[in-house]
């Protein structure tokens, strides 16, 4: 048995007006939580749909649990669990019924009670689906993705639109899934989610993987692992002339100047002195370590949620 849950080479998908996926390579190891990170329209969902067998790839190689769609379609379906971006059920089906119904589609299925317990929906087991909150519906969708005791689980933006508390409880379930030894592939456009959940991740934009690795690796890949921030009251002023003077680029983002640097210790005195002389009306100075957000900004030239 290969130690890869998923192996993809040169995956491509052309839609009428856009090359949605432009040659993607991915390796996902068994037992890890792998994140596909990128802004809306980066090609994450199309990539996932091709892996799940919902969309046919134009070209490329794909091995899922050592199987491929051409020869082993029903076996793949039996061994993967999928949570789509939105899961629509009948208004008047109960979580218990939905899990039993979908469990019946598979050769082996976990019991509804066990799954309800796992996603903490036991007290809503017999309530109509329509009466569940957004977070409860997402947890039910997650339970449905686990109904066949899958080895590989796909979660497409599992926490989009949820409040912080509901996100935390969903994260807890994802960690539990991992601890059961399953492989999880999820997409997200939340940096904190990727850092909190993923063992490894790939950053996608314009249908391509820009970089991949563990969160720590990605950050350390940056030549400029620290960021000095100057905050302003209201919008930050233009920074070109000051950047030239300082001899290092400044990113203006909202009410901040962000100055990535390999060496904040040398930069800071010069920066503060220059700011004093040129009467830059900043409020506060803050030095922090670079995050995935900075990796993304650095790789794509834009912020993740623009």
């Amino acid at each position: 048995m290969s130690d890869l849950a998923l192996r993809i080479r040169g995956l491509k998908k052309q839609y009428p007006n856009v090359l949605a996926v432009a040659g993607v390579d991915l390796d996902v190891k068994r037992g890890e939580v792998f994140g596909l990170l990128g802004p809306n329209g980066a090609g994450k969902t199309t990539t996932l749909e091709m892996i799940e067998g919902l969309t046919e790839a134009d070209s490329g190689e794909m091995e899922i649990l050592g199987l491929n769609w051409k020869q082993n379609a029903s076996e793949i379906r039996a061994r993967i669990g999928v949570q789509l971006q939105s899961t629509s059920l009948f208004n008047k089906i109960t979580p218990r019924e939905a899990l039993t119904l979908y469990g019946g589609y598979y050769p082996k299925a976990r019991t509804a009670d066990e799954l309800l317990e796992l996603v903490q929906l036991t007290d809503k087991a017999d309530a109509y689906h329509i009466t569940l909150s957004g977070g409860q519906m997402q947890r039910l969708a997650l339970a449905m993705a686990l109904v066949n005791d899958p080895e590989l689980v796909f979660l497409d933006e599992p926490t989009t639109g949820l409040d912080p508390q509901a996100r935390q409880s969903l994260w807890a379930v994802v960690r539990k899934i991992k601890s059961e030894g399953r492989t999880v592939i999820l997409t997200t456009h939340y940096m904190d989610e990727a850092e909190a959940l993923c063992d490894r991740l790939a950053i996608m934009d314009h249908g391509q993987v820009l970089t991949s690795g563990t969160p720590a690796e990605l950050i350390s890949q940056l030549a400029l692992p620290s960021v000095v921030e100057l905050s302003f009251e209201g919008r930050a002023p233009a920074a070109e002339s000051f950047a030239t003077l300082l001899g290092t680029p400044i990113d203006v983002r909202g009410d901040l100047w962000e100055i990535p640097t390999p060496d904040p210790k040398t930069l800071l005195p010069r920066l503060l002195e220059g700011a004093e002389t040129h009467e830059i009306p900043y409020q506060q100075v803050h030095v922090r370590r670079a995050t995935l957000e900075d990796v993304f900004l650095h790789k794509t030239g834009r912020s993740l949620r623009e």
């Binding site: 919902l54 039996a78 993967i80 999928v82 629509s88 449905m144």
Partner: peptide
């Protein structure tokens, strides 16, 4: 429209 068919399509049914 609501994706019920898609949800079914990822099962072996």
């Amino acid at each position: 429209e609501k994706g019920k068919f898609r949800r079914l399509a990822v099962t072996p049914l």
